[in-house]
Design a binder for these strands. Structure first.
Lengths: 149, 149
DNA sequence: CACCAGAACTTGAATCAGTCAAGAGAAGGG
DNA sequence: CCCTTCTCTTGACTGATTCAAGTTCTGGTG
């Protein structure tokens, strides 16, 4: 588990975006800071452990609000349920294993913030470039070799 | 409609990958060459128009096979159903409107094929870098302004 | 050219992520 | 402390995708 942010920090985050401070929202923010690439289900379970009971719908609502307000990033590799992470402004990217779905953060290639610009924006107001590196993780590669042998 | 590939071309594509040549597969390949960012439903409907009747399950199976064999790329912006396109080796990227979902191809920034390398591959065998530019398309931007007024 | 084995396709049911809608409940300004 | 409004709960529902069993067809073989 990474370092979970404090309750007060989460509350301040909400206030600074003019959002109401509620127990479920604070809990979701805290769990997001602790779980690397959380899907809705993980967040729901972790939040319930902390608060006793929270509806799944509330989790969806909360994530949608946080997302719209730029507090969290939502991303979703094709074929996998949506995942969420706190928006830290570092525009890092993700490395995903095609076989097991394992996901790892990777830095944007150092010294280049280039991925933010498309060659031609076709008139769109681009606000984010999402990069997903697809590959096979070491563990799955080993398994594949073993199966072939 | 873009230029649809010939039946014989599609069949050759399949043979060159040691895949059986069947009417549904040929039809799906042809439709993929004609429909820009086809989702399963579009492909299914177009294929049925051509062949009379094909099960949805067959479409999924075919797309899965083509995908595994590198004939098509599957990609899926979070919150949208999966989309498919013929793998042309040009590693272009996609521009997606957050509001209406419109999708447009964009070139990889000219002169740079850099997006293919992550700063640190964590031992993964990376075979593809998928880039999604998120933004608001001109049409939706106009609508938003109108609503505010 | 007919035959066979395995690969593809059909059908129908089931699962899972995510959404919709109506009402009960709390946050925060006055 | 009260009221308005936003939030959360409950329960039903849709749409995408998958599972499973059985039939059909492709491509290699004798």
């Amino acid at each position: 588990m990474s370092t979970m942010i404090e309750t007060e920090t989460a509350a301040d985050l909400l206030r600074s975006h003019s959002l109401r401070v509620t127990a479920p929202r604070v809990a979701v923010l805290r769990e997001l800071s602790a779980i690397p690439h959380a899907d809705v289900d993980s967040i729901a379970r972790a939040t319930r452990e902390r608060l006793g009971s929270v509806s799944t719908q509330a989790i969806y609502d909360i994530l949608a609000v946080l997302s719209v307000n730029g507090l969290v990033r939502k991303f979703g590799p094709a074929g996998h349920p949506a995942r969420f992470e706190l928006e830290l402004g570092d525009n890092h990217h993700h490395l995903v294993c095609r076989t097991c779905g394992t996901m790892i953060d990777v830095e944007c290639a150092p010294g280049k913030a280039p991925c933010l610009d498309a060659a031609d924006d076709h008139g769109f107001a681009i606000d984010e470039a999402e990069v997903i590196y697809w590959g096979i993780c070491p563990a799955c590669a080993a398994t594949a070799v073993a199966a072939t042998t």
